[in-house]
């Protein structure tokens, strides 16, 4: 197995800075903008984006976190059941513009599950998708609105995202 560094800490911060500007350019109503991260890595990324967008728009935006294990469609297909964590969305999502944040976009099934789960909390005005890495191989008609880096991959490769908040360092690795 070989491992290639595809983003270092500087590249990740630069990508997030650009994504924050793109989120602002998409012209969300500032009073109704909120971020939701998908556990685990989507949460710190959502927090960083919220801070950056907050700096540009001179505001503070709520950040929620959701664990999609309960909404996955493959419970019976896995060897053992997934570890389910609590979701924590402390604001009302109804009529908000939600920026949904995840680290890697792959098949799109996690995003489908996340959108179903958000709908259980209320009815947002719209949901936009921000991902640090888009590695392709979609199995559902889902497309990101804000992308940190497009990484063409083979189906059997793995993209690993390490973040300071979770793993102590910022990097994106491609394992093959």
């Amino acid at each position: 197995m070989s491992t290639v560094l595809i983003m270092d800490a500087v590249a990740i911060e630069r990508a997030l800075a650009r994504m924050a500007h793109e989120i602002v350019e998409a012209d969300p109503p500032p009073e109704a903008l909120a971020f939701i991260g998908i556990c685990t890595n989507g949460v710190p990324l959502a927090q960083r984006l919220a801070v950056r967008v907050g700096a540009i728009l001179q505001g503070e935006f709520p950040v929620g976190e959701i664990d999609i294990s309960m909404h996955r469609d493959d419970l019976a297909l896995r060897e053992t059941p997934p570890a389910v964590g609590p979701s924590n969305v402390s604001f009302d999502v109804t009529d908000k513009t939600i920026v949904l944040v995840d680290d890697v976009l792959f098949t799109g099934r996690s995003i489908r599950a996340a959108m179903d789960e958000i709908a259980d909390f209320g009815r947002p005005r719209r949901i936009q998708l921000a991902v640090l890495v888009d590695r392709g191989h979609r199995e559902l008609p889902i497309r990101p609105d804000f992308v940190g880096k497009n990484v063409p991959t083979a189906i059997d490769e793995r993209v690993r995202v390490h973040l300071v908040e979770v793993d102590g360092k910022d990097e994106v690795l491609l394992e093959k």
Binding site: S69, M70, H71, L75, A83, V84, P86, S87, D120, G122
Partner: peptide, 24 residues
């Protein structure tokens, strides 16, 4: 502990607008 941790996560479902998840 696995049951207790999983239950703590499911407890939160009861506080949602739609108190139902599609797991089963």
């Amino acid at each position: 502990n696995t049951v207790l941790d999983t239950a703590a996560a499911f407890k939160q479902v009861g506080k949602r607008t739609i108190k139902k998840v599609p797991s089963l």
